[in-house]
Write a protein that binds this DNA or RNA. Structure first.
Lengths: 187, 187
DNA sequence: AGTGTTTTTTGATTTAAATCAAATACGATT
DNA sequence: AATCGTATTTGATTTAAATCAAAAAACACT
């Protein structure tokens, strides 16, 4: 599903808006391990994953690589701490598979907001989705042990278990990969 | 600062929009420990904290009371898993101090969205703020030990330490109150 | 197929924080 | 001021998961 089809599936837009967005969007086929965003940079694009998989992560004080979340097909991803506020980001965003990514720049999006207010609504709806995901993960991590965290991902994101390395899953769940491997072995 | 003044401070609205919102908003003085929202109910209002303090929390599998976050003066709070999607919430929201709370219902807000599109933008900006807070907390919790979590709150929300009980702070940070008490004693 | 690289598993040990339990301090109310 | 209830601190013990280390398995490339 391309980005226009996806948007239409939950909030139909006028033809004019679709034309405008289509004209401004850029679609790219990117290889595995391509960096869409680097720490320290102001993120200038919001990405839509048409095909493939991305993850966003940061480097913590100990130099460890912590996966904050994944973006599967039909997800919007950006450096949420940077794109809107125009501040340097703490996040990296990278593809984990060969991916087809559509994106739009901050300026183009802002321009579209002004011209077509319905895009404000669209953006609001997408933000709500993202906020929900993030809160879900919060609940899953806080005061849940390693076993329960693993169950969270098997229930909510079983597809990821097939596609993502153990190390990335572990850091997403806030546990070490050794611990995750042992949990998996028990079943 | 009342809600209109606060909104005006970061996104000035037209007089018509202000009038509409003012007409639809309800302001209440509520005592400490008043429940604004109960688990299992569809949250029908978004709240603005003009004065006082609220927390939102949920009950986990073990029956423990987990503080997800606080809303200080000039914050918007709602059951984010419920208000927008019209689904039963897992959250409770309660006042922790005598508070002045302004709120608007879902239907009134939706109506205002339709009449005055600039409110869509306002809502989007508020959602971005909230998303940032939540992500910040994610980063603070994931792979940080109890000491570091405590530092997060002393740096980002020092005011809360004076106003909120140790137990609530501890559950917000994902640690037990005994552990938090010991950390505090060391300094 | 064979070699090198990365990922995952397994084992032994340590450690931070949870748990359990009790004492102390604090606050509100009469 | 005395009492009751709640919140916080302190202590002893247990435990889950991290760490350290190395082997095994999976994958990628020539």
């Amino acid at each position: 599903m391309n980005v226009i089809e996806y948007i239409n599936s939950f909030m139909p837009l006028s033809d004019e808006t679709v034309d405008e967005l289509s004209a401004k969007a850029r679609t790219q086929d990117l290889p595995k391990n391509f960096l869409l965003q680097k720490e320290g940079e102001i993120c200038n694009r919001t990405f839509y994953v048409e095909k493939g998989l991305v993850r966003w992560y940061y480097i913590n004080r100990d130099g460890k690589n912590i996966t904050d979340s994944f973006g599967v097909e039909n997800s919007f991803v950006t450096a949420f701490d940077s794109f809107f506020q125009r501040r340097p980001s703490r996040y990296f965003i990278e593809t984990l598979e060969d991916s087809t990514i559509t994106s739009i720049t901050y300026d183009d999006l802002e321009e579209t907001f002004e011209k077509f207010p319905e895009v404000q609504k669209l953006s609001r709806l997408i933000l709500i989705q993202i906020l929900e995901q993030v809160l879900d993960k919060n609940v899953a991590l806080q005061f849940h042990n390693a076993q329960e965290r693993y169950e969270f991902i098997t229930e909510k994101h079983p597809d990821l278990l097939q596609r993502v390395s153990l190390g990335h899953i572990a850091s997403f769940l806030g546990i070490t990969q050794e611990t995750l491997s042992r949990i998996r072995a028990k079943k």
